[in-house]
Nucleic acid binder design. Structure first.
Length: 429
RNA sequence: GUGGGUGUAGCUCAGCUGGUUAGAGCGUCGGGUUGUGGCCCCGAAGGUCGCCGGUUCGAAUCCGGUCACUCACCCCA
């Protein structure tokens, strides 16, 4: 058995990567417009960071982490999400003592040890952003708007944005009590796993998709009814921004999300046609996390989005994104005597900024023409022994088959001129 | 971690109720006379039939196990 990529990981081949680049470039542009700068943190972190940041009781930490001990006896974990690392870097580099807020985005692989299925991988890719150092609801709106606008502009269909507020340390305990009171007489009606742990994490029962829990919690109290004045005002402000920016959303009082660090705003964006794993982005405010990780009390908000799922959706929709960029010129050698000359000519074209392909072996001119046709090159330069002796080459336009004899010294100028004429001065993409 | 489905050339798939040299299309490579692509024609390479074991005179085909892929549950991106 030949070695295969580890379970849940995969190779992204050049053809597929074209669409990735389109998405990534558009995201980078959107981040730039909103004033976010890129941050790159290690793929590996001290296990402790995630245990403290995400929460020991979460599924993510209790059963989904790739954790190992290094040669120095340290427990390290392949990052399962990006926020904890960003906060760690923020504190490690004392960014809290610089200008606030700090707005950063990231793009890269994350790792979770789960059984793979449609749209779920063990190594998957997220892009995300964090705003640290402001409690302004405009920042919340921003982190919702960016992924929404990104996917809107990419043509993702059937986007559904759900929003909720789960309150803060002031008001959440009251809600928690109310929910516990509600659940207590209904425990028997919950799904088996929540019958066991409903008390530890009552909010999660709301999020359960089982018929049992859904029915049992149909009349459950809603988080938004218990918000303190600060949280209620904050939530109203976030909603106002979304409304005035015409971002369609619905409030979903069952949305609580799986990570412990969230406060106030939480949201999730799903896309149709993804099957069971349909969340393409999620996030929210985490005003307590920086302090939890040993820093001062710094409010923050952010989001993360799964690129694999976004791209899967685009592919399923048949979205045509990312054309291959063929070489402009293919340099063919007619005869072994001119092979070196042809290759050197290709190098010279490239140095002049012209994308030039050529052959490596010594294949027949016919075979080289076939390759040239397949690459999609607009021009073929045939270096023939007879012409080359006169310092000339044959320049063939592939679309029409028209050929002309050109002085080798004039080739770059000729190609450049025709390129400018074709693009009509428009900037090349 | 639990359950269902699927494993035959690089890809998509045939291979009837077990029978001899396992096929097709696409792709790849070469050729169709002097140094010219796309269409057409010809040819070639390429398979431990996922792996291990069992039943049988005989297994790609039946049975068991195992691995992988896949979908779903849990949970999320």
């Amino acid at each position: 058995m030949r070695i295969q990529a580890p379970r849940g990981t995969r190779d992204l081949l050049p053809d597929e990567l074209r669409i990735w680049h389109v998405v990534e470039e558009r995201a980078r542009e959107l981040f730039r417009l909103h004033g976010y700068a890129e941050i790159r943190t290690p793929l590996l972190e001290a296990t402790e960071l995630f245990v403290r940041g995400i929460g020991e009781g979460t599924d993510l930490v209790s059963k989904e982490m790739y954790t190992f001990t290094d040669r120095g006896g340290r427990s390290l974990t392949l990052r399962p999400e990006g926020t904890a690392s960003v906060v760690r870097a923020y504190l490690e580099h004392r960014l809290e003592s610089g200008p606030q807020p700090v707005k950063v985005y990231y793009l890269g692989p994350m790792f979770r040890y789960e059984r793979p299925q449609a749209g779920r991988y063990r190594q998957f890719h997220q892009l995300g952003a964090e705003v640290l150092g402001t409690q302004d609801p405009a920042a919340d709106a921003e982190t919702i708007l960016i992924p929404y606008d990104l996917y809107q502009s990419l043509g993702l269909q059937g986007l559904d944005l759900r929003l909720n507020s789960i309150g803060c340390p002031n008001c959440r305990p009251r809600y928690r009590e109310a929910l516990l009171d509600y659940l207590r007489p209904r425990v028997e009606r919950l799904c088996p796993s929540h019958q066991r742990n409903w008390e530890a994490n009552p909010l999660r029962v709301l999020d359960c998709k089982s018929e049992a829990c859904r029915a049992a919690t149909a009349e459950a109290p809603e988080t938004t009814a218990f918000l303190c004045e600060v949280c209620a005002d904050h939530f109203a402000a976030v909603r106002r921004y979304l409304e005035r920016l015409q971002v369609p959303y619905r409030v979903d009082s069952r949305l609580v999300r799986g990570l412990d660090y969230y406060t106030k705003t939480v949201f999730e964006i799903t896309a149709e046609s993804l099957g069971a794993q349909d969340a393409v982005a999620g996030g929210g405010r985490y005003d307590g996390l920086v302090q939890e990780l040993g820093g001062p009390s710094v409010p923050a908000v952010g989001f993360a989005s799964g690129l694999d799922r976004v791209i899967l959706t685009l592919q399923r929709q048949g979205t045509d994104l990312g054309q291959a960029r063929p070489p402009e010129v293919f340099v063919a050698a007619a005869g072994q005597g001119v092979q070196e000359a042809a290759r050197i000519l290709a190098f010279r074209l490239r140095r002049a900024g012209i994308a030039a392909a050529t052959e490596y072996g010594d294949r027949s001119l016919k075979a080289q023409m076939k390759v040239a046709g397949r690459t999609g090159a607009q021009w073929v330069v045939v270096v023939g022994e007879a012409e080359w002796a006169q310092g000339q080459v044959v320049l063939r336009e592939m679309a029409t088959g028209a050929q002309q004899i050109v002085d080798a010294g004039q080739l770059i100028a000729t190609l450049t001129r025709s390129r400018e004429a074709a693009t009509d001065g428009a900037p090349r993409r």
